[in-house]
């Protein structure tokens, strides 16, 4: 057999990464935005090169841990890091809040998963982030800005002390509207009030991207429905593997059933059955409660003041 093109004769071996000072999945930076919200920068140069706005990772913090899907909040191709913003709401995220310190390593981080967000040619867009959703909407807003669009940011928080990344958004948004539930910062109201305000001031908005709790995404999609503005949402159903294998993350989109992990996570917000999603998110409520209570109890046991008492 004669092989016409000996392609391996070239020196193309680039798979061996340059010797790195860091271990795989090492946490290189951490910042706490509030008593429950924290940011981790995880070392993964290969993933930092591949990541695109809208994608997510599956993280395992230790060998007997859960596989937790987390949206990529940012990536730095030069530093070789993936940024995750996490809210301590259950056992795993509370535990990670304690254990994930700079210099520690995650048991595993796989990704980037999901289909990257599609940047249409829209010239004026609203990027809406609610609560923790503020983080994952950031790379999308930046990508829109880089594509030359006029970007209006609408960020919603419960109160002023939970606000984070305002500076990052100011740097890339042409306009930024902050909304707080209690009025302690920006406008007093929900993100839907911010969306309405932006729509009143701009009649030529072509697309809205909304990321946050399902109730907030549902309200955002409803706010733009009448005007017929395309509204993309990023769904966060319960997942195990993230590779299209378990079907736990299935969502109803229009007449079809989609798997958020491989068919999404971005979907047309006007087509998504949010009520179905919200019910499905409650599937493990009881197990989550048991695990969280057990974790909280074990933390109390380990407090030195009590252990010695």
């Amino acid at each position: 057999m004669i092989l016409s093109l000996p392609f391996w004769s070239k020196e193309t071996d680039m798979s061996t990464p340059a010797a790195s000072a860091y271990q795989p999945f090492e946490i290189l930076a951490r910042e706490d935005y509030s008593p429950v919200t924290y940011m981790l920068e995880v070392h993964h140069p290969q993933m930092a090169r591949a990541a695109q706005p809208g994608q997510f990772v599956i993280v395992m913090s230790h060998a007997t841990g859960e596989r937790v899907p987390l949206t990529i909040a940012d990536f730095d191709r030069e530093k070789g890091t993936i940024t995750l913003v996490i809210q301590a709401v259950g056992k795993t995220t509370m535990e990670m809040q304690q254990t994930c310190q700079v210099g520690t390593v995650l048991h595993g981080m796989a990704g980037p998963m999901g289909i990257p967000s599609h940047l249409s040619g829209a010239k004026k867009v609203i990027c809406v982030g609610g609560g923790l959703g503020v983080a994952p909407v950031y790379p999308q807003a930046r990508a829109w800005k880089e594509s030359g669009a006029y970007v209006i940011g609408v960020l919603g928080f419960r109160s002023n002390d939970l606000v984070f990344w305002e500076d990052k958004f100011r740097a890339i948004c042409d306009e930024l509207i902050i909304c707080t539930d209690d009025g302690s910062a920006g406008i007093h109201g929900f993100v839907t009030d911010g969306i309405k305000q932006a729509m009143e001031q701009h009649s030529d908005i072509k697309e809205v991207v909304a990321i946050g709790p399902p109730v907030m995404m549902k309200a955002s999609a409803n706010a733009t429905r009448a005007a017929g503005i395309k509204t993309m949402v990023s769904l966060n159903p319960i997942m195990v593997d993230g590779t299209g294998m378990c079907g736990g993350c299935r969502v109803k989109v229009g007449e079809t059933v989609k798997f958020a992990c491989v068919d999404g996570p971005d979907f047309d917000g006007h087509q998504v059955d949010f009520d179905d999603l919200i019910i499905r998110l409650k599937r493990y409520k009881e197990e989550e409660r048991v695990a969280t209570e057990r974790w909280t109890a074990s933390c109390r046991m380990n407090e030195p003041s009590l252990a010695t008492a």
Binding site: T64, G65, E66, R67, K91, T92, V240, R283, Y284, E287, E288, V290, A291, R294
Partner: peptide, 10 residues
């Protein structure tokens, strides 16, 4: 083995 492992199974 839940809750000794973190992944639940209903």
């Amino acid at each position: 083995d839940f809750p000794n492992v973190d992944t639940p199974l209903p």
